[in-house]
Write a protein that binds this DNA or RNA. Sequence first.
RNA 1: GGACCCGUCGCCUAGCACGGAUAGGGCACCGGAUUUCUAAUCCGGCUGUCGAGGGUUCGAAUCCCUCCGGGUCCGCCA
Length: 569
Amino acid sequence: MGHDPWTELRDRAEQVRRTIESELRVTTPGVLQEAPADHGLFALAAHTWAKELKTSPASIATRASRVKPVSPFAPLRAEGPYVNFTVDPAPFAELVLSAVRSDGETYGTSPARKERVLLEHTSANPTGPLHVGRARNPFLGDALVRLMRAAGYKVTSEYLVNDIGRQMVLLYWAVAHLPEDPSDSEERIEYRYVKLYQKASAKLEGDETLKREIERLTQRFEGGDVQLTKDIRKVGEAVLGGILETLRRVNVTYDSFFWESDAILDGSVQRVIERLMPLGKEEDGARYLDLTGFGLEGDAAKYFFVRRDGTSLYTTRDIAYHLNKMGRCDVAIDVIGEDHKLSFQRLKAAFQLMGIDWAPETIFYAFVNLPEGRMSTRKGRVVYLDDLIDEAIDRAYAEVAKRREDLPEARKREIAQTIGVAAVRYNIVRVQAEKAITFRWEEALSFEGNSAPFLQYAHARACSILAKADGHGPSDLRLLVHPQEQMLIRWIAKFPSTVREAAEGRRVHAVAGYAADFASQFNLFYRDCPVLAAEPASLRGARLGLVDASRVVLRNALDGLGLTAPKEM
RNA sequence: GGACCCGUCGCCUAGCACGGAUAGGGCACCGGAUUUCUAAUCCGGCUGUCGAGGGUUCGAAUCCCUCCGGGUCCGCCA
């Protein structure tokens, strides 16, 4: 475990770079960059030294290229103003593929790190089913959990259950007082509840008696009425159960849950209030922190933590929650919607004001909107994640049925589910989190080109070859000199560092892009290099080894994104 | 009004943190490849003032400034 051939190659190239610099007697260090595919593995731009040596980059490159490189690099080549590092195919193939062989199925993972990471994601309020506008959160969060684990971090995934606040009280009231529509055929509880919630929400407009009722309940609730808290929590638990069921369908699970009501019941919210009191200012009986000077001004700088009636606010509970987190990890990562940006800026400022030298890391994502605007559960303008999943699986089934009449029904269903779910996840995760997405059915259900089935298909192809091979037989890796074999080996080499850098930079989409490129390279190899029919036997064996290595890379890349790699499709 | 984010072929998108070789993909459209390991594949064609302008630099999609367009936020809501 833990081999990283690309970094190994880069280190060797850096060694050569230093030799070049001492030969040239230059003091400015050059920057080793990855070379375009047809110019070797790495390159140095000689422009860097032109000023210092007072000659042209091209002539410097020529001089530099006389330096003898180390294995597996071939003699350096000057091409225009660049010094290119190409490799000798045979030792290159051996270096990379022996690394894969010794790591086996774990190739791509990095050695354990000491940081404990607590990664919070999704944390949707338990007031209704998960909708697509929120779906970015679990897909991004879960993929990051997986990739960080592969990169060696010790990661705990957590869901903050927000069972406090007016929304929860209103849902509780609706469930307790409104009759369910007897013709309602919905089986799942959160779908039935959300309809009651929408009704109550509509009724609230202009109904003063109900408004007062909800206010009274809210006060009792937040004042610490244990029985009421338990009753409301029961409603929250039911809805959360449904949300988690939806998430399980798309392979998202959690290690732990934190209930906001617990922070009230165990007194930690009260302790936060007492701690903030001396730091706060007063306005009409309410209390706030003045965060002017932390890059905030005006109303944005007022961070209220106690209402006039003495009850806590979301902000207060958020501080309590993050103080709790602080004690449980080295790095806390919160995956949240960009609407929380100001909140977190204030939370971090509040921590500074409290003299706490720690802050959670944040990953903000832009919303998935409908062409007609933002999704809203309250207004009923939503696409539920379950519906998207159902539709994706249906379409995948149609495709599988078309292609694989030979398979038994159950197997076709299984494959359709694998493909449909992956397609939905991949379409979200391939895009940078900060970019806004407009949800369109045709795009969300794309099965061609840059899509999950494209990656899965490459994996299935690899598996299919291996299944037919019946053992590898003799193998000589030095025979893998075909340009497309070499290109594939290069991509295999890059896998571990790609995962590690994506995890360190919290850039999930980088792995999605890598996986697509890799699948593409594998398809080119598949086209150009017959495997089972290859002669001599030692070339066949070597190609089988290459296919197996590709299989491991694809499987682990897909897994890091939370996508299942099917053996056939 | 202020703060933060985004702006790359008709549409979606990578590259930007760390500046270097003709800005990569995909969709759509047109044309081709299947007696060969699954054609959910592959090949060719078409499409780009990298939002605009200025600056820094030998070199800018990438860094800096200004502006424009879009998103998000600025509750004693969560």
